[in-house]
Amino acid sequence: MRVLGIETSCDETGVAVYDTKQGLLGHALYSQTDIHAQYGGVVPELASRDHIRKLIPLIKTLLNESHTKPDEIDGIAYTAGPGLVGALLVGAAVGRSLAWTWQVPAIGVHHLEGHLLAAMLEEPAPSFPFLALLVSGGHTQLVEVAEIGKYIILGESVDDAAGEAFDKTAKLLGLGYPGGPALARLAEQGNPDAFNFPRPMTQRPGLDFSFSGLKTHVLTTWRAQTQNKQTRADIARAFEDAVIDTLAIKCRRALKQSGLTRLIIAGGVGANQRLRSRLGELAKEMSVSVYYPRPIFCTDNGAMIAYAGAIRLETGQSEPLAFNAYPRWPINELNYSVS
């Protein structure tokens, strides 16, 4: 089965063709970052306006580059939520009507299921069950993936997502938007012993996270210091260390509690190299295997939506002609069986 996947939940327009026999045949991505940078964050109305300009041209490019003819497409998958409702509706409207016109089934995919299964696009792909650490600008969750279609949230952020904390902290330090990656680069020049920031919620039991306090900690530290280049790098380092350490502590705890032996890192922050090497060390120490999607499939993309959609379409699931978008949609509400 060959599926066209469409992702428009936030500020990236992503499309891909996935074939259940041949694997990923192609993917294309357009990022709106430059449009939103001047406003210091994603402006939902501008995001929607850009998706509707870019989606069809991107699909055209994709079909050309992946040598896929329209009549070879057996199904359409679009992100139905969670995300920005106006942005989601663009992908849903285009995706559902493409499917109607071509008379093939369509499926509304859960954005986070896409992220959780993104590692399945890599060689070797993990087998089930596994523990997934999902860290992005919108989410920080530890999810037990029992099998495809069965997702149990073990812990999640009670306030800011890890990626959000990166971006907000970068803004405080004057690194612009989106500053997460810039903050990570700056941290490389920081002295790891200059400051020691708290590891939130690690002293009590449980697998939930909280990152908004760290951001305040950065602000008070920055204000109390001589604000020079080195201090900025030192604070960036201390902040990144605190986030990575916190994520690692909770991963260790979750692996221990669940007895799972495979760890998957997904989401935009999963592209952070120091997080990857830290979790790599943890995995080695605990004798568990660790899997990462390639960096471009950590951030939002169409390939993970095409993959998750193909799996669900193959089980016979599909959407009626009435389509919708679900800005809030807990992943544990998704529950289906592939067998």
Partner: peptide
């Protein structure tokens, strides 16, 4: 309505491209 316009527009783009 901005969202309303994009619903019709998205549906039409999909049909026009596919057909």
């Amino acid at each position: 309505s901005f969202t309303g316009l994009r619903i019709a527009c998205g549906v039409v783009q999909g049909i026009a491209f596919a057909a």
